[in-house]
Design a protein around this nucleic acid. Sequence first.
DNA 1: CGGACAACCTGGTTGC
DNA 2: TGCAACCAGGTTGTCC
Length: 275
Amino acid sequence: MPELPEVETVVRALRPLVAGRTVVALSRADAPDGPKYAGLSRAVGARVLEVARRGKFIVMPLSTGDLVAVHLGMTGTLSPTKPADHLRVRLELADAGGARSIIHFRDPRRFGRFVVTAPDDLATLPTLAAMGPEPLEPGFTAGTFLASLAARRGPIKPLLLGQRIVAGLGNIYADEALFAARIHPEHPADRIPPARVRALHLAIREVLGRAIEARGTTLRDYRDPAGEAGNFAVALQAYGRGGEPCMRCDAVLESRVVGQRTTTFCPRCQRLPRG
DNA sequence: CGGACAACCTGGTTGC
DNA sequence: TGCAACCAGGTTGTCC
């Protein structure tokens, strides 16, 4: 599933294909009208200033002041190659010389979004509007992370998935970061010792950084715009390994549902406080 | 406001 | 082999 490292990989591949070009057409294909594909016609005639990422959103500011926001959901892909099925949106571009190209948004499960909107009107994208700090940028410090967690009750993992405290984590990298920091996914956020919070702050950046270097994790569906799979699946130590031995201590990894998500952790390395 | 949780959607896997 | 049940899960919307 596309989380921060996968989206970052897509953005880097897309940038030279899209940035600086003019939108000739932007339209729905096999997709119903609705908020998931809102405002597409607003982009026609505009120049794409840049291709950026905010959390798991791909954000493309336009010369008109509007922005294109794309979320890949769980199965979305962007590619110059025309897909055989599930084509939802077609983005037609022209370069400075007038040469045309097309980016195709394919999304079998339709969890993705492709919208054009004014940057101060993100009512249809509340998660983007309230996005927390980018974990790989200087604004994400151990101090601000500690303060954010101290202000919240409840188990740590759903907070990591919420995008408000830190941007870009999904189920895979949340499990991996908690495993690396040796924190139980249900540990109350405001009761994690500061040294452990600092370990988690480091682990989040470390695992995301390594995953970007590996061009993301492909379990089944994820592909970059060239159709290439990511290489990080072999490096996963917790996610998807329930019932298998812990790579640190050999205990059997446990899977349970936390915050409606399947969660895997080591019951020996990642302990809850008493009570 | 935050937290809890159902809904969205399709393809792959599992179980009988 | 066929087919139904189940599962994956990021975000939004609804409810309290």
